[in-house]
Design a protein around this nucleic acid. Structure first.
Length: 834
RNA sequence: GCGGGCGUGGCGGAAUGGCAGACGCUGCGGACUUAAACUCCGUUGGGGCAACCCGUGCGGGUUCGACUCCCGCCGCCCGCACCA
């Protein structure tokens, strides 16, 4: 209804220009739907190209940030289609998740109702945008037909030992009332979703063994055309460290295992540090030290992770001696064992050998508690290091000292030899340590996929058989946040029979992390209604790996790492032969509100596209979003420039409308014609190149410049030439991906058959792009003093001669000595004088 | 602390080592109009009447020529961060 309102105020305007988005946009939207031109067949004589964009959460309405994220990939998809690909631009909704549940609690509306209503509204807005979405492939993850396959994947992973249940210390969000995966905790202790402070709890939960694929997930990054930033973030997260595991004998007969990346410095290990939570602590602490150790361990437990890991300069190392000693395996030195909170139980073995001469943290600790320091690497060309006087640790290369048989070697040579030697002695082995932890997928919430497990009093934990899937999420549950899954109180869901013995049993009531849903959804697009599995292999092979994936940087680790993991699991299940899901990744920047802050719904800072579409049309809004700046950069929203885009469209529309039958003359081969052809081909090249490099802002510039030039020519004789017609047709074709509605309208005005979106992209011909003559600058001492017009293809000498003949140049060089003459054909002339 | 990115008019931004500020917005002047809006034309980095001079965060360097490359700073943003 809103769409109509604008016509009243701008009615005179339309009479003048004829361009009326309020009329043409609904017209073509209906036509596209009727003719189903955006349906992507799985098979075609053209190469397939899936242009995937991270599907949205159905939060309610699309704001301009969504348009930014979705309309620009649409431009790309449309261009790819015109360039000869069979393009699929699918869309779906990531529709399980907390906001639905929160809305339910707050507004007393069922999550399902809320979710499906939002999906309807957002689908409408996608259509408003003019996106070439093939809705027949829509994926909605809260549909039982979809989440059934989440459960199926879970069971397959269980069979393969990739899913397991285990107890442990896990992150708990008191606001969302659920546990979280490590990846969902940011800045040490903040919930990625809601921003609340999270803390650790000991709970038994379901995990997926993503660590089995750590090596492959790391190596696979090298071959991907992804932003370097994202790859770096994943590498950091996976955190591979090469080193060795060493075993230190204890005086009670046990041994203490440590992981170190610097086994070459083991001769400099003067004490050990173990995490306060380390299980050995209780057994090795001496009676005299016990009170102090217990007090420290207790204090460490209550500290938040962020406090413990803070590296503030003000913060000093703390720790307590256990009273126990370990034996350094290489020199039998008796060294004290301390506990300190700078050693984390969650990394390595939870214990370290401390080498204060080579590690900054150990150095600080040694100085703090007056522990000995023995240098093991002597930097070359520097005074001899002395443990008593060193002011900081040295971790560079140098000559090995104080290390028995290794003295005199270079540190870099000693490292592998030392590992080998330790191995021979049975005191250590080369080892690789990872920062990556297994993926915790249990959530104590309602609006998610039920985990298909049954607990039977006699059989224990029993997976729900495949043929009984899906385990349907009951719609009549009480979904209030209690810290337990709301399903617990749903008697008819919980109480079931054991699939093995038929006796009474209880269902698992936790649901899955919604990142499960998004870890394979794009496979589903290939065969969205397939019933014999998550996807039809043959169909999926037509579209995978995904040629282009667009989405926000915020998923650099979370979703993108999980999706890569799932792909490798799917491959190992023999379901499809794909190594990596997304060959090419591009991240859009974030559109902020006008005051530069995040466009959050709760703070009312969302800018809705409907009003803008009503006022300017979807085409103008699409152009405006393209033109804001580099797509990968984003920035604060403003609508100031949108009128410029509207003007551009009107000009194009005017040129097309006035073409008529004027261009029915013959080609004369005039300079004007040649010049227009050259302009046309240069513009084709610019537009084409800029699509490939995601330079959509400069692509729009190229189109605007083209229209502006063409507008000028409209007043000349050239409009009788067929060259003119071709130039105008090219304009419409080049505009088609960016402004799909008006391009379609203009194509019709030109008398061309439906649809402009099924035409071929104009082909650039370098030979035709050359102008007869060009203007180049003439510099004296690097400063532009004048310009000359030369025939294109003029030689360096010809340019120079012409330049010197210029009055201004002659004046500049008069009475001076020419030191050097630079003449670059087609670029410039520079005369250096003194 | 480590890693990455960025710094250009009033604003968004553009520039394979070759005319800095394309393109758009805004502003200013004009045409059209009874008037306004729309549209169209011109103009719009600073200084100067002009010739010219100064200008891409700061300081050096390489080069005939540097926003671009190199070295050293300053500032902002992002990621990682006691990971052994």
């Amino acid at each position: 209804m809103r769409l109509r309102e604008y016509a009243v105020t701008d009615i005179t305007d339309q009479i003048q220009t004829g361009y009326d988005p309020a009329v043409i946009e609904p017209k073509w939207r209906a036509r596209w739907q009727e003719s189903a031109i955006y349906k992507a067949a799985n098979h075609s004589d053209k190469p397939n190209w899936m242009s995937l964009t991270m599907y949205p959460y159905p939060s309610g309405v699309l704001h301009v940030g969504h348009w930014f994220a979705f309309s620009i990939p649409d431009v790309f998809a449309r261009a790819q289609r015109m360039r000869g690909y069979n393009v699929m631009y699918p869309m779906g909704f990531d529709s399980f998740g907390l906001p639905a549940e929160n809305a339910a609690i707050k507004h007393n509306i069922h999550p399902a109702k809320w979710t499906y209503e939002n999906i309807d509204e957002m689908s409408r807005q996608f259509d408003l945008m003019g996106a070439m979405i093939d809705w027949d492939r829509k994926v909605v993850t809260c549909d039982p037909e979809y989440y059934k396959w989440n459960q199926w994947f879970f069971l397959k992973m269980l069979e393969k030992g990739l899913a397991y249940r285990a107890g442990g210390s896990v992150w708990w969000c008191p606001n969302d009332q659920t546990v979280l995966a490590n990846e969902q905790v940011i800045d040490g202790n903040i919930c990625e979703r809601c921003g609340a402070e999270v803390y650790k709890r000991d709970l038994e939960q379901w995990y997926l063994r993503i660590t089995d694929y750590a090596e492959e997930l790391l190596e696979g990054l090298d071959g991907l055309d992804w932003p370097e930033r994202v790859k770096t973030m994943q590498r950091n997260w996976i955190g591979r460290s090469e080193g060795a595991r060493l075993s230190f004998a204890l005086e009670n007969g046990e041994s203490l295992e440590v992981f170190t990346t610097r086994p070459d410095t083991v001769f400099g290990a003067t004490f050990m540090v173990i995490a306060p939570e380390h299980p050995l602590v209780a057994r090795i602490t001496t009676d005299e030290q016990r009170a102090e150790v217990d007090a420290y361990a207790q204090k460490a437990r209550t500290k938040t992770e962020i406090e413990r890991q803070s590296t503030d300069a003000s913060r000093q190392k703390s720790g307590v001696f256990t009273g126990a000693y370990a034996i350094n395996p290489v020199n039998d030195a008796r060294i004290p064992i301390w506990i300190a909170d700078y050693v984390l139980m969650t990394y390595g073995t939870g214990a370290i050998m401390a080498v204060p001469s080579g590690d900054t943290r150990d150095f600080e600790f040694a100085r703090q508690f007056d522990l000995p320091i023995i240098p093991t690497v002597q930097p070359e060309d520097q005074p001899l290091l002395d443990g008593a006087t060193m002011t900081e640790a040295y971790h560079g290369d140098g000559i090995v000292v104080n290390s028995g048989p290794f003295d005199g070697l270079r540190q870099s040579e000693a490292l592998p030899k030392m590992i080998e030697w330790l191995g021979e002695q049975g005191r250590g082995t080369a080892e690789i340590s990872w920062r990556l932890r297994d993926w915790l997928i249990s959530r104590q919430r309602y609006w998610g996929t039920p985990i298909p497990i049954v607990y039977c009093d006699t059989c224990g934990m029993v997976p729900v058989p495949e043929d009984q899937l899906p385990v349907v999420l009951p719609l009549d549950a009480e979904f209030k946040p209690t810290g337990q899954s709301p399903l617990i109180t749903h008697e008819s869901f919980v109480n079931t029979t054991c699939p093995q013995c038929g006796g009474s049993a209880r269902r698992e009531t936790d649901t899955m992390d919604t990142f499960m849903d998004s870890s394979w959804y794009w496979f589903r697009y290939a065969s969205p209604n397939y019933e014999d599995g998550p996807f039809d292999r043959e169909a999926a092979e037509q579209w995978n790996p995904v040629a282009l994936y667009c989405g926000g940087i915020e998923h650099a680790i979370l979703h993108l790492l999980y999706a890569r993991f799932f792909t490798k699991v799917v491959r190992d299940l023999g379901m499809i032969d794909v190594e990596e899901p997304f060959s090419r990744l591009r991240n859009q920047g974030m559109i902020l509100s006008e005051d530069g802050r995040k466009m959050s719904k709760s703070r009312g800072r969302q800018i809705g596209p409907d009003e803008l579409v009503a006022a300017y049309g979807a085409d103008a809004l699409r152009l405006h979003l393209m033109f804001l700046g580099p797509w990968e950069q984003g920035g604060p929203w403003n609508d100031r420039g949108i009128t410029g885009m509207e003007r551009f469209i009107r000009r194009a529309y005017t040129v097309v409308s006035e073409l008529g039958t004027s261009a029915s003359g013959t080609v004369t081969g005039s300079d004007a014609e040649r010049s227009l052809i050259a302009l046309q081909h240069r513009t084709i090249k610019r537009a084409t190149d800029q699509i490939d490099t995601f330079g959509f802002n400069t692509m729009v510039s190229a189109l605007i410049e083209y229209v502006n030039e063409v507008m000028k020519l409209k007043e000349t004789d050239i409009i009788t030439s067929p060259v003119w017609r071709e130039a105008v047709e090219t304009l419409v074709l080049l505009m088609a991906p960016s402004t799909p509605y008006v391009a379609e309208e203009m194509w019709e005005i030109l008398g061309k058959p439906f649809s402009v979106h099924q035409q071929n992209w104009p082909v650039y011909d370098p030979a035709l792009a050359v102008e007869a003559s060009i203007e180049i600058p003439v510099q004296v001492n690097g400063k532009v003093r004048d310009r000359i017009v030369v025939a294109s293809g003029a030689s360096a000498d010809e340019q120079l001669t012409a330049a010197k003949a210029l009055e201004k140049i002659a004046a500049q060089i008069k009475g001076k000595q020419i030191v050097k003459e630079v003449s670059v054909p087609g670029r410039l002339v520079n005369i250096v004088v003194k």
